[in-house]
Design a protein around this nucleic acid. Structure first.
Lengths: 115, 115
DNA sequence: TATATTTGCAACCGATCAGTTGCTTATACA
DNA sequence: TGTATAAGCAACTGATCGGTTGCAAATATA
C-alpha cells in the first residue's frame, strides 16, 4: 500500500476533497454529496487522505467530520523547493502566486463536481 | 492518459530521475544506468516526464540528453500555497527548508538506486 | 561495409486503482 | 420499539501502472 503524500494528491478528486473541507469541516456524507460519484468512492478517497495524514476524522454521534490537517503538504513544498531555481524565475514567489489566485477568487469548476 | 504534473511526481522513481538530471544533463542510457531496473522502464518514466513538460530531450547524434524543465513544478507549489496557513506554522518558509536540506547536502539513498 | 551502440516500439504480465453494488452496523429519533 | 440515517465492510470490475522481454531502426565507428 503506497500511501505517501505525493501519491495522495496525485488524484484530482482527492485534491478537490481537500479544497472542499479546507473551507469548512464537513460530514462524510456532506462531502460525498458534493461529487457526482457514489458515497463509497468518496469515502475511499477520504480514507486514503486520512491514512497519509492530510485529513483527520472527528466522530460526533453517528457522524464523522473531516478536518484538514495539511501540514504534510510541507513535505512536497520542501521537495520542490530544492529545484526552485528552475521555476522561481517564472513566478517571483509563492506569495505572489497566492495573491494572484486570491484575487481571481473563483475556484475552477471541474466536470466531476455537482452543480 | 492522465499526464499532469501531480501524477508525474507521484512516482518515487520519477522524482529520483528529476534529482539525477537536475545535477547534470545525462543521456537516456546514463540515467538508466543509475537505476536497478531495465533501460526500458526508466525510458518510460522519462517519457512521462517529457510529456508533462518536466524534462526536455536534446538529440545529439544517436544520443538524447535529458534537460530539466522544472517550471511546471510551480503549478504544484501554487496549489499548495493556497493551503499554506495549514502547514506554514510548522515550517517557517520554503527557504528555511531549502537551507536545511542544503546544509545536510547528501541526498537520501533509496533502495532502488544502484551503488 | 560490417559491427557495435543508443534508442524506440510493441506485446505481455501481475498488481494496484478508481469506481460500483449490496449488505451490515451503529446511532438518532418518532 | 420501530424506523430512518450515517457510515463501514466486502466483493467485484475494467482500466491503468510499473515493470519485463524481444526486436527493429538509426547512428557511429572499425
Amino acid at each position: 500500500m503506497r500511501r505517501d503524500v505525493f501519491q495522495a494528491i496525485a488524484d484530482p478528486t482527492r485534491r478537490e476533497i481537500i479544497g472542499v473541507i479546507a473551507k469548512e469541516s464537513l460530514t462524510l456524507n456532506a462531502v460525498a454529496a458534493t461529487f457526482d460519484m457514489s458515497r463509497q468512492a468518496v469515502s475511499k478517497h477520504i480514507k486514503i487522505l486520512v491514512e497519509c495524514g492530510l485529513i483527520e476524522l472527528e466522530t460526533q454521534g453517528r457522524e464523522r467530520y473531516c478536518k484538514p490537517r495539511l501540514e504534510k503538504l510541507g513535505e512536497i513544498s520542501g521537495w520542490i523547493a530544492q529545484y526552485r531555481q528552475y521555476w522561481a524565475s517564472h513566478l517571483d514567489s509563492m506569495e505572489d502566486y497566492l495573491n494572484e489566485i486570491q484575487k481571481t477568487a473563483k475556484p475552477k469548476q471541474h466536470a466531476t463536481r455537482k452543480k
